[in-house]
Structure formats: structure tokens, C-alpha cells
Computed example of a mutant assay.
Amino acid sequence: MQTLRQLLRQKRLDTNPSDRVKFGKQLLPQLQKIANFKNDQKIGLYLSNNGEIDPIYIQNFLKKQEISTYLPVIDGKSLKFAKIGENFRNNQYGIPEPISTDIISAEQLDILLIPLVGFDKNKNRIGMGGGYYDRTLDFKKQPKIAKKPKLFGLAFDCQQVDQIDVQEWDVPLDKIITPSNIY
């Protein structure tokens, strides 16, 4: 698995800068096909890091619509979500996190956009390997109980693989969105 993760991370990093911008812009209309955004929703997203596809156009759209947006903040071995504001600090991985008093759990989000290292057509994902999202979203394995949030993975098309070996702790996604497809 580690070699596949490394290969996919490199593919992600090798995407040229002008394509990164173009592909990032293409995510918003793809997402709008499946998400009915409303002002009272709470949307979790991420800041692009380590070659991840950038959801900045989605973030800007949500801000213009005055929809509340949240970013992950590390809380022990899992994640909480802090409302995006003006002030940030870097976490132990050097990723900026909002400094906010409005911190919520994943269960309080309506939609959560998740970065991927790799994915397959069955909506399984390979993450960075820390398990933060899987631990945070463990409650989603009880589908009759947990309807929220909808989990949408964001990726470049080149990150798709034929099949991912699923582990018992892996949380599948509801949809995966790439610049050219919705799975």
C-alpha cells in the first residue's frame, strides 16, 4: 500500500501548475450538479496541501453565497472543524488551521469535502496515511444512524486506480468528484 500511496502522491505533485488551476475551477460546476447549497448549511473543506486538488473556487463560491465553511483542525488523533476566519496557525504538519471559537464536530456538518491520494470507482479512498478522517468519520459506518455529513472526495482524474484494498477502519465516501467525472 505504501508504494501505491507514494506513486499516487507523486502523480498528484507532477500535475503542472496551469492544469492545477484549470482542474480546480472545474470542481465547482461538478459539485453543483450533486449538491444543493443552502444558506443554513455548514460545509467542511480543506486547504490544498502536498499537491492536493485545490477547492479554493468552491470556497470562494460558498463565501459569496454566505454559506458557513469550516476547515479541519487536529484534535488528538482525529479532527474537529473550525469556522474559517481571518487568523490561522500551522498544525504539527505545517498545515494552516483557523483560530476560531466556533468549533464543531463532523456530525454537525452537512457536506464534507475530503482530499484524496487515490480512489477507485467504488468510492474507496487512500488518504495520507494518518487515519484522521477515518477516525473522525467512524460514526458514518452506521448508515441508518448517520445521514450527515455527505462525504465528497475531491481528486484529479489521474488519482484513480482499479481497486483499493479496503481495511475495516476505512470509511467509504458518498461521491468522488474529479474535474471530468462524478463517481
Rank of each mutant, 00 (worst) to 15 (best):
D165L: 15
D19A: 12
R89C: 07
D75M: 07
Q142S: 15
L28V: 03
K11E: 12
L47K: 07
Q2I: 15
P143Q: 09
K80S: 10
E168I: 11
I53H: 05
A146P: 00
L31I: 13
S78M: 10
Y183R: 09
V171E: 00
P172L: 04
A35H: 07
D165Y: 13
I145F: 13
S105T: 15
P55L: 00
L112R: 01
K33P: 02
L71V: 11
K42S: 12
K150W: 13
P72M: 01
S180L: 11
T3N: 14
T178A: 04
I43V: 11
Q59I: 12
N49E: 08
F156G: 00
V21D: 12
Q167G: 11
L79P: 08
K42P: 11
V117N: 01
S68K: 15
S18F: 14
K22R: 15
I145R: 12
S48H: 05
I114T: 09
F152H: 05
D75I: 09
I104E: 00
D162I: 10
K25Y: 12
L13Y: 08
D54K: 04
N50H: 14
I104L: 05
K80Q: 14
N60I: 12
L4D: 03
P179W: 00
Y57F: 15
G94S: 09
L109I: 06
P55I: 00
I58W: 07
L71P: 09
F61Q: 04
N90A: 14
D134W: 01
P55N: 03
